[in-house]
């Protein structure tokens, strides 16, 4: 077990290195170079030269690469060209908002998605299954911003139940009210994913021999479903939900933009609009590192819950 944990953690290192290499290449895709892209074609040769020196773009590519990787690995993700703050400071400023949103969405997604998936699996090919499958298919098809805009129109503009803009507020009640729509939007998308995974995972488990044995022994249907089936179906559900983390981040970026909510989404949008390539590059590294860590953690949790995984390796 400990051997597996160490192996799995070591495996994350080449992944991190490869990710850094890819970001490095991506940033060099800019036509011309980043300095021209940031300042425009009409900037004077001197200004361009200064910026290149500042960004290290006047160095040979291998030197740039080594510097980039060592900087990133030592936790120096660069500095925003517009605000002057480091990327980590920028992220730390908005991270609480995004985390709050993501956690609320995960909560909604789990509370709605798992029961929906279980019902669909238990009532397979009957109307609850069809309703649940259609709902989750529709949920999967919504780009985060489309569902967000439709909700905004319905609840904030037409019904006027909730505020259009979600600003941070000291008053807990109005804070919660402004979190409601974005969290619901993101939560319903997560519900669709989780319901789908729960359904197929439950169907797999319900086909196993031990379920039949338990049923033959006279275990009550409710206990059979909740304890014997769902208990085991949860493992793949946790893994897949971990894998959807990237989707969750992408959708939360869109959700934040629609609801003009502070967070990573607005940060990225701002970096795009001001052509702040160092900030973009740093954000990309932070995001991908985050996803790699979550994936590693998911694998470890999986091994912890299901001993077969670590023995198989």
């Amino acid at each position: 077990m400990i051997g597996y944990v160490i192996r799995r953690l070591l495996l994350a290192i080449p992944t991190l290195l490869a990710m850094l290499t890819m970001v490095f290449i991506l940033v060099r895709l800019v036509p011309g170079d980043a300095a021209v892209a940031m300042l425009g074609d009409r900037a004077s040769a001197q200004t361009l030269q200064n910026l290149r020196a500042q960004l290290g773009l006047d160095q040979p590519i291998p030197v740039q690469y080594v510097r980039f990787v060592t900087d990133m690995l030592s936790g120096d993700f660069g500095r925003s060209m517009t605000s002057g703050r480091t990327v980590m400071e920028e992220v730390a400023l908005v991270l609480p908002y995004t985390l709050e949103l993501a956690l609320a969405a995960m909560l909604i997604g789990t509370l709605l998605g798992i029961p929906l998936g279980v019902v669909a699996a238990v009532r397979r090919n009957r109307w609850p299954d069809y309703v649940s499958r259609i709902l989750s298919l529709v949920g999967l098809s919504f780009p985060g911003f489309v569902s967000g805009i439709l909700m905004l129109l319905a609840f904030a503009v037409w019904l006027q139940w909730l505020p259009v803009m979600s600003r941070a507020s000291a008053d807990p009640l109005s804070h919660l009210r402004s979190l409601a729509l974005p969290a619901l939007n993101l939560g319903l998308i997560m519900t669709a994913y989780i319901a789908r995974v729960t359904r197929s995972s439950m169907l797999d488990v319900m086909g196993e021999d031990y379920i039949r044995t338990a049923r033959a022994k006279g275990v009550k249907p409710r206990k059979l479903i909740m304890r014997h089936a769902l208990g085991n179906a949860l493992i793949p559900i946790v893994t897949v939900v971990g894998l959807y983390f990237g989707t969750l981040i992408g959708n939360s970026v869109l959700t934040e933009i629609v609801f003009t909510r502070p967070g990573l989404g607005k940060l990225i949008l701002g970096a795009l609009q001001s052509r702040d390539y160092t900030l973009l590059q740093g954000l990309m590294v932070v995001f991908a590192t985050f996803v790699i860590l979550v994936n590693t953690a998911t694998d470890l949790i999986y091994a912890l819950v299901d001993p077969r995984v670590s023995y198989a390796q």
Partner: peptide, 24 residues
């Protein structure tokens, strides 16, 4: 497969956003 795993660790939208922003 190592490269594939790394590609999968970028959220789709963010990777697309990054490439589109870089290429124009």
């Amino acid at each position: 497969m190592g490269i594939v795993d790394v590609m999968l660790s970028f959220p789709t939208l963010l990777l697309g956003l990054m490439v589109a922003a870089m290429l124009g």
